[in-house]
Design a protein around this nucleic acid. Structure first.
Length: 631
RNA sequence: GGGCCCGUAGCUCAGCCAGGAUAGAGCGCCGGCCUCCUAAGCCGGUGGUCGGGGGUUCGAAUCCCCCCGGGCCCGCCA
């Protein structure tokens, strides 16, 4: 169902004055209270101000309208509070999915998200990706679309080769008990990489020419040594062993051997890398499940290479390739037009360098493999759209990907491949580096958030592990969702653990308060049959300002959810829910609900609380937050 | 050097794409409120040359240009 009282109003006005509904959707505002309940901004709605007088008369004929004022470019509307509030509550009571209006033509959509390198635990950056990806999945599904979620396991390439080498040197020891496998792999990776980098720099220092280069290398070395010292402190035995074993090998040569062997499908190397990466993925699955981010299909990048998909694509692309700095590359200048950029959503001024097709040693490159993967995603789900949730720092390779698809003749796929871009998470005070093991992991944030919730719950004598876990996870998710995706998130422990006002715990607390009201009502023998209560309610109850404000905010829910859906922006919904909670808490403090003696008025108040309860419940669920009934 | 994103109250953020009414929240700070449905709450107070300068317009936080500051990208990494 698509019950929306605000839209009823818009429809009536649009008909009365004879303009398309879309104009009013655009030119509709919720103004400051003193001006009215809703306003039509006439220039925005495409209304000629000379016709203002006729319009003014027409608007007043709508039954939901009580009076209207003309003021400058605004047509301010005051509603018939009794009629409108009854309508809103009627919609909430009769529509189980109040606020959500399913697509008439649902789409098949693939969402690829997280796809973090399987060489270290998920960090705060991947957490934002997971939060956004699972949000868009949820809201797309809620609106009736079919969605398939996929995780691309980047097991081909230099980074997995590094950790595999470290793992091999250690004698392929098992993950110690009590250690999460991805944390174990991450440690080996960071140590191997840091030690190898130190050795590499020392070598270069030996042959360095010029004071400047020597100085630069020394600075780099100092930093590396500091990281190494920290890693040594974390795991001295492992550090010493890897460090010792690395002395005897030609690092670059060994890496190249592993990479080549893996792409060829050499059995020993395949077993080695699959073991390492598999362990890491096991850890990812645990964390993602905890975080409420579901993945339907796990795709191994190596399967695309071994299956011949990548080779086929290379063959096709080579036909249009040209030489670039001695390598075979795809130059886009011949197809690159302003019109194509518009269709593919590529920024007008973005400089796009040629795409190198293959390394000199014959191994493949990421973007080429990603072409094969993109086609696979479209094909296997028969998808209308593929959405890649990837940080904005990858804008260039994502644009190259679409252009390459277009060049190959996959025009539809190129146009329907969406790069859902978001800004990164900045961590105050430190520079994160997964290569050096300098990261804040999602696991530790979730653990700490849970612990902090627990402290608060203990104060209330309700030390429930389950609730602490739910609220802790919710706090982190909400923190990452309430900033617009196009804006960087500034991470700080103080803000992620601040559970007042702008936080999930605040919303959950407010929700639990509504549940508390219903509990109390049942205790004193009130039957909570919403339809019956609706029949017996006092229709004029919402004329009081405070209650009226709540009715209006409940009425705004469908529009808000729709905007959040069409822009795939969770922050719109998140900020709205905070407003809902603020309004409700003010009202809650102001007048008793269950204790109300007048039965009709009590029914109305209960219904209003129920409406708030439904809005919070639905909104939280869309954000991927499970409401809790008691805190 | 070029490109993308960002710059709004001490701090964290709305508002900008589709220009309009005295620029909004929260945190912080100061002062109040638990014999009553959960005080992670409520009420009051405090706080802004919307980074700077030009331009367009009856009207600019919003559109255009220039500059300054921050982040990211420009690799035979991903």
């Amino acid at each position: 169902m698509c019950l929306n009282a605000v839209n009823d109003l818009r429809l009536c006005i649009a008909n009365a004055i004879g303009i398309p509904l879309e104009n009013l959707v655009r030119g509709f505002e919720v103004p400051k209270e003193e001006f009215g309940d809703f306003s039509i901004v006439m220039p925005k709605a495409g209304i000629d101000r000379n016709q203002a007088e006729q319009i003014f008369e027409a608007v007043r004929r709508c039954d939901l309208v009580w009076r209207a004022d003309l003021r400058g470019i605004y047509l301010n509307i005051f509603l018939n509070r009794g009629l409108f509030s009854t309508r809103v509550l009627q919609y909430v009571v009769n529509d189980d999915s109040y606020g959500i209006c399913r697509e008439r033509e649902p789409k098949k959509i693939v969402v690829e998200y997280v796809s973090a390198n399987p060489i270290h635990p998920l960090h705060i950056g991947a957490a934002r990706n997971a939060a956004l990806g699972s949000f868009i999945t949820r809201i797309l599904k809620a609106f009736g679309n079919s969605v398939q979620t996929r995780f691309y396991i980047n097991d081909v390439g230099r980074q997995t080769a590094i950790v595999a080498l470290g793992f091999k040197l250690l004698g392929r020891v098992e993950v110690p008990s009590g250690v999460k496998p991805d944390h174990w792999i991450g440690l080996i990776y960071a140590i191997t990489n840091t030690v190898a980098e130190i050795q590499g720099i020392k070598k270069r220092l030996g042959v360095a020419v010029g004071e400047e280069e020597t100085k630069r290398l020394r600075e780099e070395l100092d930093q590396l040594v500091a990281d190494a010292a920290r890693l040594w402190k974390t795991a001295p035995d492992i550090f010493n062993e890897i460090s010792e074993k690395l002395k005897g090998v030609d690092f670059e040569e060994e890496l190249s051997k592993i990479m080549r062997g893996y792409e060829k499908g050499d059995a020993d190397i395949v077993q080695l890398i699959r073991e390492v990466v598999g362990a890491c993925i096991e850890g990812f699955k645990e964390t993602l499940q905890r975080f409420g981010a579901e993945i339907d299909i796990w795709d191994w990048e190596s399967d695309l290479v071994w299956g011949g998909d990548v080779e086929k694509i290379l063959e096709v692309l080579k036909k249009s390739a040209t030489a670039h700095k001695g390598a075979l590359a795809l130059d886009f200048s011949s197809v690159d037009t302003a019109e194509l950029r518009r269709r593919l959503g590529i920024p007008r001024e973005l400089e796009i360098p040629p795409l190198i097709l293959q390394r000199s040693d014959g191994t493949t490159l990421y973007t080429i493999r990603d072409i094969a993967y993109t086609l696979k995603k479209f094909r296997e789900f028969n998808a209308d759209k593929v959405i890649n949730v990837i940080a904005s720092e990858q804008t260039l390779p994502q644009a190259q990907l679409r252009l390459a698809l277009y060049t190959m003749g996959h025009k539809k796929e190129a146009e329907n491949l969406i790069h859902y871009s978001y800004e990164i998470v900045n961590v105050e005070g430190i520079k994160m580096s997964s290569r050096r093991g300098r990261i804040i992991t999602l696991d530790e944030i979730l653990d700490e958030a849970k612990r902090r919730v627990m402290v608060e719950l203990e104060k209330r004598g309700n030390a429930s592990e389950i609730i602490a876990e739910k609220m802790g996870v919710a706090a982190v998710r909400f923190y990452l969702l309430f900033v617009s995706p196009s804006r960087p998130v500034k991470f700080s422990w103080a803000s992620v653990l601040d559970f007042e006002r702008n936080s999930a715990p605040y919303l959950l607390y407010t929700y639990a308060r509504t549940e508390g009201i219903f509990r109390k009502a049942r205790e004193i023998g009130v039957e909570l049959d919403w339809k019956k209560l609706f029949e017996s309610m006092d229709k004029g109850f919402a004329t009081a300002d405070r209650r009226w404000r709540l009715v209006k905010i409940v009425a705004e829910f469908p529009d808000t959810v729709h905007k959040s859906y069409s822009e795939l922006d969770p922050s719109i919904l998140a900020l709205y829910l905070l407003r809902v909670a603020d309004e409700f808490n003010t009202w809650y403090d102001e007048e008793p609900i269950v204790i109300e003696k007048d039965e009709k008025l009590r029914a109305s108040k209960l219904l209003l609380a129920y409406a708030i309860n439904r809005v919070l419940n639905k909104g939280l669920q869309l954000l991927g937050i499970e409401p809790v009934e008691k805190v």
